[in-house]
Design a protein around this nucleic acid. Structure first.
Lengths: 166, 166
DNA sequence: TATTGTTATACTCTATAACTATA
DNA sequence: TATAGTTATAGAGTATAACAATA
């Protein structure tokens, strides 16, 4: 059966009657973009968590390491702004990764308040493998999509969350 | 600038150098479907929460009321299965909605262990307004999409999270 | 005066164990 | 024995307030 476009009509049964539900009708919720986006997001996130577990990385850990790898010297504030994590909550995340010797802090060249973050050699190795796994996992989690559909989906999703392009 | 398809190459700078990041490069994360789906989902959810606040409904409350409205007599277990909420966590949700007299419990006709849930007249009125608001909000949150793009996006998202159709 | 990084803490959400009543 | 609903509780994630050091 293809995706229902229209929700079922509201049931005519009075609320006082004792009804039994055979199969749950979710057709209305399925007309909502938020419902579909959330369900799809959770489905991918689930696969992501499983595949990152062997590296001992949660999604936020992966995101931090990947961003530090591609932005050597990035500050905690910049990470917070990019990932939507509040500063007090990033402290522990960075602290753990530092304790695992995956990243290191270095004094910021121009700003004595800030600290620049860099990957250690171990961090570089780990993030390279983790990013390769993430790229593989992409295809796995969207296995029912063609390459063209994948590109289309990516573009439409970005149209939702990205600010109006200049 | 259009959506970047390819991530930037890894920086050549050694990790021991003190670098400064001007603008954060997120191009790799943006190649990941999970990242895009999560960002888009959060963007919509944010609007959803704001627009549901006047009704005193969180997203899960809205989902429960909408499902009960379209599935009179639905049980807690069925709600849990549909929404991915664990039974102990649904107790408080249903309890609050019952206390607000938006829904009522009735004995299940065939199963003495179960309880059928029904909307009260107040619940029916509230959910009708909330669903109308949700439908409006859909267009608001996806304002940069055409109607055709919205249908395409919906279909592709469902292709990700829905089990293989029979 | 504003900002970076931090501590302490509170609140919400999610998860687990165990109980009761019924099937 | 298994299931529906419930209680109590633990854990993760997310939020606010306040502080020291630096701009």
């Amino acid at each position: 059966m293809p995706a229902a476009r229209k929700p079922s009509p509201l049931p005519a049964h009075p609320a006082s009657l004792a009804n039994v539900v055979d199969t749950v009708d979710t057709s209305f919720l399925e007309t909502l973009m938020g419902y579909n986006a959330r369900r799809a997001s959770l489905a991918i996130v689930e696969v992501f968590m499983v595949r990152m577990a062997p590296y001992g990385l949660r999604i936020v850990d992966f995101s931090v390491l990947s961003l530090v790898g591609r932005n050597p010297g990035i500050t905690s504030r910049q990470l917070c702004g990019t990932l939507g994590v509040l500063p007090p909550n990033l402290v522990g995340i960075v602290g753990q990764l530092e304790k695992r010797q995956l990243l290191a802090r270095q004094p910021h060249p121009h700003d004595g308040r800030a600290t620049g973050l860099h990957l250690t050699p171990q961090g570089q190795t780990l993030v390279a493998h983790a990013e390769a796994t993430a790229a593989e996992l992409e295809l796995e989690a969207t296995a029912r999509l063609t390459a063209a559909e994948r590109r289309t989906l990516m573009r439409l999703l970005q149209k939702i969350y990205r600010p109006e392009p200049a």
